[in-house]
Design a protein around this nucleic acid. Structure first.
Length: 539
RNA sequence: GGGUUCGUAGCUCAGCCAGGUAGAGUACCGGACUUUUAAUCCGGCUGUCCGGGGUCCGAAUCCCCGCGAACCCGCCA
């Protein structure tokens, strides 16, 4: 698949570049090779992303779908039809109340999230609220998908054939699970969790017998352990019909059933479910007779302290919050630039990603040349994927994000027009535009939320106070001072204050910083009356 | 116990997956700007690429063995 020939010492090997040269193309190519060698039809190649619906979806949950969509794009680019199935596991039971959500949810522990009221009050259920947040994130990024709910999947019996095969082979599967991953419970228990018809809970109802002729499961709602807590069942004895009643397969076998039922050829997964995937691959291949999909494993997204981003902890980076500070493209760049390696992610990455996107754009449009041909192709390819293979015809105006944040810290009132005016004065841009205004809004949000100046305690002696009040007088008269910079300097000297210290104090008062821009023009920029008012507060 | 990832400038990290001159931000020094401050811009400086072996004309990059750090699994979905 790659042709290497050495032309001579010191000369680079020639490489065949696959697709657009990114990891996405390479993976799509491997997938196609595999499908061909398996002899499967490639009329339409479906890729899947599983969405958890039990907590607030974070950037990592989004990543699973975004990357699957990347494979879909690469396949289409290579001339195949493809589709992304977004499967919401909304029959999943609530095990833990996520941080910040109301306490009354404890009454709904172990119930499927689709049958719990929405604590935010805007959707039909808890589960629908959570999956909607994720789908909303995908919509805002421009990602197209076919939404498939777990509840509908089971209620309509879409997995009934797979369930039947799995349940009749449960003994064999249980032993294999123990062998592959050391989990022994399925040697006894059936890999199926009914929803108790009496109390509506999952997990407490234990399936103990499968009746293959009737395709029914006998269960008793006894008890279960979730984490360290024991949950008592209601004692109900029931029968569930796998073709229409609610209940779900255990994760160790559910993926395999879905893969076959929906004919899935690709699914990415996080390393936390590595074991489940290993078992599911075996179940698909050996029990269901369906070659498991091609996979790619990715590391978890961690927060900046290196802790796992957990839906139940407070350190959640959601796409909704991200879009307050960065463009959709900055999220796509984060997710498409690479898939390997541990990723510590936080809002503080946004400025760099915003600037990096702009750099990609410069390379794509030939403003920046790279010396290495392969890297140029790869970089352009990345830019195209970030634009969902529909790159713009021309370059959008852009200003360095950090510069914008700095300016936004200075101008808080009437920010957009003032910052834009300043940028024109700096000759950073020739004129203001809707794109620049939008960037100012994003950077402004970032400045407000993360770069908040700490309130500085300023200690003033009498001489300094006198000097400051003289300055206030100058600033308060109607006519604009001719050389304010020099005036400030003179005022300090006349009052026996070291100019260096005087400037420092002014920066502390006005900017809450030790240093800053040249003070004379700066005070005129922010408005001298306003500056006078701020200084007066310290007198 | 099993598995995965990471280790690169004082600091934070990119580059590694498809080998080809060691990179960015920050910090520091200097300049644009006759007195103070320097946001911004420009220029400069910064290396045992964790250690050791192997493959190769060539290794930060690929392979093996160590050392160190983190994460996941061994509840459950």
């Amino acid at each position: 698949m790659r042709s290497l020939h050495v032309k001579g010492i010191g000369i680079m090997e020639e490489q065949k570049i696959i697709g657009r040269g990114t990891w996405i193309d390479k993976l799509a190519d491997e997938l196609l090779q595999r499908e061909k060698s398996l002899g499967r039809s490639t009329d339409i190649i479906r890729v899947e992303s599983g969405l958890g619906a039990s907590g607030i979806p974070h950037i990592g949950s989004l990543g699973d779908a975004v990357r699957a969509y990347g494979i879909k794009m690469a396949l289409e680019n290579m001339g195949y039809r493809s589709e992304l199935v977004a499967y919401s596991d909304d029959l999943d039971g609530l095990r833990k109340i996520p941080e910040g959500l109301p306490d009354w949810l404890k009454d709904h522990i172990a119930k499927p999230v689709s049958f719990i009221p929405d604590p935010f009050g805007c959707h039909d259920s808890y589960g629908l609220h959570m999956s909607s947040l994720l789908l909303d994130g995908l919509d805002k990024l421009g990602i197209k998908y076919k939404f498939q709910r777990g509840v509908d999947t089971y209620r309509n019996g879409l997995l009934k054939d797979q369930m039947h095969t799995i349940l009749t082979n449960s003994k064999k599967i249980g032993e294999k699970i123990a062998e592959l991953v050391g989990q022994e419970k399925y040697q006894e228990a059936l890999p199926y969790f009914p929803v108790c018809a009496n109390c509506g809970r999952l997990y407490t109802a234990v399936a103990y017998e499968y009746l293959p002729d009737e395709k029914k499961i006998k269960y008793k709602c006894s008890s279960t352990t979730i984490g360290s807590k024991v949950l008592d069942g209601c004692g109900h004895d029931g029968v569930a019909d796998i073709t229409k009643d609610l209940g779900k397969l255990a994760w160790k076998v559910e993926f395999a059933a879905r893969w076959q039922a929906f004919d899935i050829r690709f699914e990415a997964y996080g390393k936390d479910i590595m074991d489940s995937v290993k078992v599911n691959d075996w179940v698909a291949d050996e029990i269901l007779g369906f070659h498991h999909p091609t996979h790619v494993k990715y590391e978890m997204f961690l927060d900046k302290g290196g802790k796992k981003i957990s839906k139940s902890l407070g350190n959640v980076v959601t796409s909704q919050a991200w879009l307050r500070y960065g463009t959709p493209k900055s999220i796509l760049l984060l997710l498409y630039k690479r898939i390997t390696g541990t990723r510590e992610v936080g809002f503080e990455d946004i400025p760099a990603l915003m600037d990096e996107y702009h750099e990609l754009e410069n390379i794509y449009f030939g403003k920046i040349k790279l010396d290495n041909e392969a890297k140029t192709v790869k970089t352009k390819g990345l830019y195209e994927y970030v634009n969902l293979l529909n790159p713009p015809k021309g370059q959008a105006p852009y200003v360095n994000y950090r510069l914008l944040v700095q300016l936004c810290k200075i101008f808080r009132e009437d920010r957009v027009s003032k910052v834009a005016k300043k940028l024109v004065e700096y000759r950073t841009i020739s004129e203001s535009s809707a794109e620049i205004d939008q960037l100012i809004i994003l950077a402004g949000n970032y400045a407000d939320d993360f770069d908040k100046p700490a309130k500085v305690e300023v200690h003033l002696d009498d001489a300094t106070k006198k000097a400051l009040s003289e300055l206030v007088n100058i600033l308060s008269v109607d006519s604009e001072p001719a050389d304010l910079q020099n005036d400030i300097y003179q005022i300090a000297k006349n009052n026996g204050v070291q100019p260096k210290d005087f400037f420092k104090i002014l920066y502390q008062i006005i900017l809450a910083a030790e240093r800053g821009p040249k003070l004379g023009p700066f005070i005129l920029d922010i408005g001298r009356k306003k500056a006078a008012a701020v200084i007066s507060e310290h007198l």
